[in-house]
Every structure is written in structure tokens, then in C-alpha cells.
Measured scan of single mutants.
Amino acid sequence: MEVRTIKVFTTVDNINLHTQVVDMSMTYGQQFGPTYLDGADVTKIKPHNSHEGKTFYVLPNDDTLRVEAFEYYHTTDPSFLGRYMSALNHTKKWKYPQVNGLTSIKWADNNCYLATALLTLQQIELKFNPPALQDAYYRARAGEAANFCALILAYCNKTVGELGDVRETMSYLFQHANLDSCKRVLNVVCKTCGQQQTTLKGVEAVMYMGTLSYEQFKKGVQIPCTCGKQATKYLVQQESPFVMMSAPPAQYELKHGTFTCASEYTGNYQCGHYKHITSKETLYCIDGALLTKSSEYKGPITDVFYKENSYTTTIK
């Protein structure tokens, strides 16, 4: 009895394709271990004539594949690729409408935090270190965002349907971005203890939790000093293409032309909904596939993004 075979390709990165001759009487799992086709788990399936010449994702289970996976995804987590594939199996079914010149995501599976993050990423200057993220990001900007969303979920250790947080998501993504040249110098002034300067680099240099107003941050924000008295913390120097200011959701007025974009969060910790506000020729609110415009805006804002380049204080 002759062994019926077909020729397929296996890959971990969709760049390096490895030619395989597979036995049609055995499952993919018996031949390769966990195997995925377009995100779908085909591990328990036997090869079919229609699979001839198709590319299958496999887990990096030998040295060659491990090197290829690390170079593309910059992670050695053995569960990463499987999590990416199972997320992709959902995100490829989502709709990605162009809204006001940006790629958004039609609401499904509690994905409003991903839509808000995706919209924000198209408006701030950011370059990702893992080629996987950078490639998928370019495709997302062009309207094909399924891979990018699935990668975000995998890097953030999230599953489809789980509630997510924009600030946490951005923080994970910033860790995989090139923020080497970003720098922030802060000064804390206390009447009792004097003053202390701190220099922050990388992710810490672009994120701040405690106030939404970048102007206020430049002037000074009140913080408790270690001595128990009130101290003032203010920005001395900022070198970065953008800054992200966050605070627990509270009524906040966004003035046209003073910011790049913002995240609105309605609801409580267990259950809520994100919308995205962007400042173009007027203010726009993007909620999944829905767009509304207004000249002014007041609502429960939790993150505001500002364009920056270089700032030095005039406070002496």
C-alpha cells in the first residue's frame, strides 16, 4: 500500500517557510505537534488534498525554529505562539472599519479597549522592536488589523473576551517599542525636605499616572512627601515624541487643539466601556464603527496623549 502524501510549508514567522512532505494517514499533531492554519487549530486533523502548498504555523520545537521565533517575536515564552494563534482565530472574524481616516474595530468580545489602543497607536510616533509587531502594525494602518490585535493580546497575556485596560495595554506595548531616546527629568520640591531631581528613561519617561493635564504637570502637581507634608512635583525636561497622561476616570474637559487623542471610560472596574476622542479640525468621538463630532467635550476621561518633541522648564 502506497503512502499518500502532500507537500506543505511549516513556519513560526510566515517569513521562513520549511518544506514538509506530510503523510495523509496521520494527523498534523502526530507529525508536527500543535499546528495552526489561519489561526485555526488543526492539530487533530489529517492532511487533505486542499492543504497542498498551504502554510501551517507550528510551535518552535527545534533550534532553527526557536531562533526564527525569537528573532521575529522577541520572546522565548513557549506558550506565546499558541496564544497568538488562538487569538487570531477570533480577531480574523472582527470587522476593521476605516473611521475618520483611522483603522478602528467594530465592537465584539469586549474589544473596546483594543480599538482605543489601536486608534491611539496610529496617532503617536512609535516604532516597535519585534519585527512581528512592526509588520502587523503597518498592515493594521492599511486596514488589516487582525494579526496586530492578536499579537497585542498575546504580548499582554490576554484572551479574547476578557476586559482590558488601555493604560495597561499601552504599557505592555511600550515595553516592546523603541523608547531608548526618551528621557524625563522631574523635580520634587518640599518646604521641609528641599528639592530632589529624578531622571527617568524609556517607558517611565512617557507615562504618568495622577493627572490628565500635561500643562498642569509642567506647572506642578501636589504629591505627598515622605515627611508627610505636601510637596510639588513638576516637569523639568521632556525628550520624547509623545507623552501619555493618565488618571482614574473623572469628568474632564478636553479643549480642541490642546491634545492629540484621549480615552474615555464609562462604567466601573468590573464592567465598563471605552471610547476614543481625537482632536482634528474639530473633536471626534470614535466608538467602534461609530463616529460623532463636537466642538467641545466633557466626560469621564482616563488617558490623554500629547505630541511632544523637546521641553525644558522655565521655572527657576
Rank of each mutant, 00 (worst) to 15 (best):
F56N: 04
L133P: 02
K233D: 00
T282H: 12
Y297M: 06
K293D: 09
V3N: 13
K280I: 11
L37V: 10
K93Y: 12
K54D: 12
V166E: 02
K219G: 08
S86K: 13
T10M: 07
V304H: 01
H276M: 08
G39H: 09
L173D: 03
R184K: 02
A108K: 08
H256C: 15
E215T: 09
Y28P: 06
N89E: 14
Y28V: 04
Q230A: 15
V160M: 00
T120S: 11
S213K: 03
V243G: 00
K95E: 15
L151S: 04
I124Q: 02
T292P: 02
L163M: 14
N49P: 14
D77Y: 03
T76E: 09
T75L: 07
T64P: 09
I315C: 15
G257L: 05
D41Q: 12
N111V: 01
E68Y: 05
P224N: 12
V160R: 04
C149F: 01
A250F: 08
T159S: 15
S171A: 12
Q31P: 05
V304T: 04
T312P: 09
I15Q: 10
Y73E: 04
Y234H: 07
T43L: 06
A177L: 06
D135H: 12
T43S: 12
L283P: 00
G143T: 03
F217R: 01
P248K: 12
Y73M: 04
L235Q: 00
W94D: 05
P224W: 09
R167H: 06
N111S: 04
E281L: 02
L133V: 01
A177P: 01
V99Q: 08
D63G: 15
Y274K: 01
P97F: 08
E168M: 14
V221K: 05
H176L: 13
Q197L: 10
L81A: 04
I105A: 07
G161T: 04
A289S: 13
T278K: 01
T159F: 07
E168A: 11
E296S: 11
Y113G: 00
E68F: 04
E144N: 13
R141K: 15
L81M: 10
G101A: 05
P47L: 04
K229G: 15
C225Q: 02
Y214Q: 02
Y252A: 11
Y311I: 10
S181V: 07
Y284E: 12
M170L: 11
Y137K: 03
K92P: 04
K298F: 09
F242P: 01
S263L: 06
S279F: 01
T169W: 02
L200S: 10
A146Y: 06
K219Y: 07
I152G: 03
